[in-house]
């Protein structure tokens, strides 16, 4: 545990994140440019869906990130509740709007994809409904974080919500296996290997790398901003007390 404590130190985080930030931005820009070019221009159309399949290269990485960011938030919230690390609070707070954004992208692109393929913008099947609940969990987390004058109390309430809401993550992932849904089952992360042709899988994986590094870069920036805001608040309080 002693080693992990070192990384929870905000000063070390500031130093590390400053060094890593340009690399994350660089990787995100390059992989997104190449991934979008391959996905939109080079990858073949699908045998069933034709050109509409290209929505996948944005929809699927966004949906993966929606789940990944929430999982990260739940882990940070557990660390914050159990070990009371300030940095874990800040990570959860900084990640929530980013996760909400990814979820909204997944919902919107999914809707645009559903109309031409399924014949409907929206249905209340288990997958779509559980992802909508995930979006509301993100919004609730943001609201709860800001609902208290004392940021520490807001962070605790939001951490409890993030942990309780975590039960939704496995429900989203396995909804297509547990129940009849209109949404098809998993294509990439499934037993027996991906059911997706390599010419389409590679652009998809590149886009997933791009989304991940884009998220890490934004998270670094936002946590740095949160640390600065906390310092400012402490200074203002000290000045007011004088």
């Amino acid at each position: 545990m002693a080693n992990l404590h070192k990384f929870a130190n905000p000063t070390l985080f500031l130093r590390l994140s400053r060094a890593l930030l340009p690399w994350c931005v660089g990787i995100a820009v390059v992989t997104m440019a190449v991934g979008l070019y391959l996905g939109l221009f080079v990858a073949p159309p699908d045998y069933q869906q034709g050109e509409s399949v290209r929505i996948m290269y944005v929809h699927v990485p966004a949906a993966w990130m929606a789940l990944f960011v929430y999982t990260l938030m739940a882990v940070a919230s557990a660390v914050s509740l159990i070990w009371r690390h300030l940095l874990a609070d800040l990570v959860a707070k900084a990640a929530a709007p980013l996760g909400a954004g990814f979820t909204l992208i997944a919902l919107a692109t999914g809707s645009l994809w559903g109309k031409p393929m399924w014949g409907t913008w929206w249905v209340w099947d288990a997958r779509l409904t559980s992802v909508l609940i995930l979006f509301f969990l993100y919004l609730g987390h943001i609201a709860l974080t800001h609902a208290f004058d004392d940021p520490g109390r807001g962070a605790r309430a939001a951490a409890i919500l993030a942990l309780v809401g975590f039960v939704n993550v496995p429900i989203i992932k396995f909804s297509v296996d547990w129940w009849n849904t209109l949404h098809q089952p998993a294509s990439v992360l499934k037993l027996g290997g991906p059911a997706i042709h390599p010419t389409m899988l590679w652009p998809l994986l590149l886009m997933a790398v791009a989304f991940t590094f884009y998220f890490i870069a934004l998270l670094f920036l936002r946590v740095r901003g949160e640390i600065a805001a906390r310092k400012l608040r402490a200074l203002q309080l000290a000045r007011a007390a004088r």
């Binding site: 869906q49 393929m117 089952p185 998993a186 294509s187």
Partner: peptide, 29 residues
């Protein structure tokens, strides 16, 4: 009153689908 289409989780180029159909391995998996 309403009919919606499902599609499966398999994605492939049309040429690959044609080749699979020709060789008789279509829909095996």
């Amino acid at each position: 009153r309403e009919v919606l289409a499902k599609h499966d989780e398999t994605y492939m180029p049309p040429e690959v689908a044609d080749a699979l159909k020709k060789s008789g391995h279509w829909k095996e998996t």
